[in-house]
Nucleic acid binder design. Structure first.
Lengths: 123, 123
DNA sequence: ATATTTGTTATATTCATAGTATAACAGATT
DNA sequence: AATCTGTTATACTATGAATATAACAAATAT
């Protein structure tokens, strides 16, 4: 998978990295057990500092998307604490859906968007 | 509506303000034409600086949730550019739903969460 | 008319975070 | 022994968040 950085974005580099790797897992381009490039290698590839990549990896580890394997390095390992995940998802959705309601987007229209996104992930 | 600030949150004050006011519109606690407290009054009430409140109001104006009425001050006025709103909603949902997919949350479970949140808004 | 309130703008300061840079360390591999 | 992994420490720069004081134009109220 090709990880890229938008240097003009107002989003922090380490956030962009986290989101792209999570995206990669969602579309199954990264699979359980796959190892990510080393912090130094990835930093070199995309032209940013090693510590910024390390920060992203550390967060992904805390949030249960990867783990450290002393043999391979950082590998994909999703800790599916579903109960916790649903709670976090609900909170994030509240903010997003409040905007939708303000803009007169209906519940049915949201469902359509959800279906479309899920469909995109599985192909 | 009572606007509050979580001083221990890692979210910026002005972001918290924006989200709460958007929330207030979504649950119809704020209605079209209602006027918000003045920047100085609200800042005084919640114990933060005037400019921080002004920053939130400026963003809400840019994103089409309020407008300036020279007579009343800042009033609720939702600019429902639905086409644009759906595009923004879709982008925000992609990030949130990617996490959901990683954590094995199904499309149906997301629909249930969406319904529950929409239900909460309309009461 | 005068005083007050509205949002807005300008300037300056403090503080936290993001990102970079160089260096070193413990485990594991080659 | 040399090389790779993530990790930690320290230091620096730049940017944004939040505060503080001050002033301005437009509208309102007395």
């Amino acid at each position: 998978m090709i990880v890229t950085i938008d240097f003009n974005s107002d989003e922090a580099f380490y956030i962009q990295l986290c989101n792209q790797i999570i995206f990669g897992i969602a579309i199954a381009e990264f699979r359980e057990g796959d190892n990510l490039p080393s912090v130094r290698e990835l930093a070199e590839d995309i032209g940013i500092n090693m510590h910024t990549v390390n920060k992203a990896y550390t967060i992904l580890k805390q949030e249960g998307y990867v783990k450290l394997d002393r043999r391979k390095g950082t590998v994909i390992a999703v800790n599916a604490d579903k109960y916790k995940a649903i709670g976090e998802l609900t909170n994030e959705m509240k903010v997003v859906l409040a905007k939708a309601v303000c803009k007169n987007i209906s519940c049915e229209e949201v469902h359509e968007i959800v279906d479309k996104i899920f469909c995109d992930f599985s192909k």
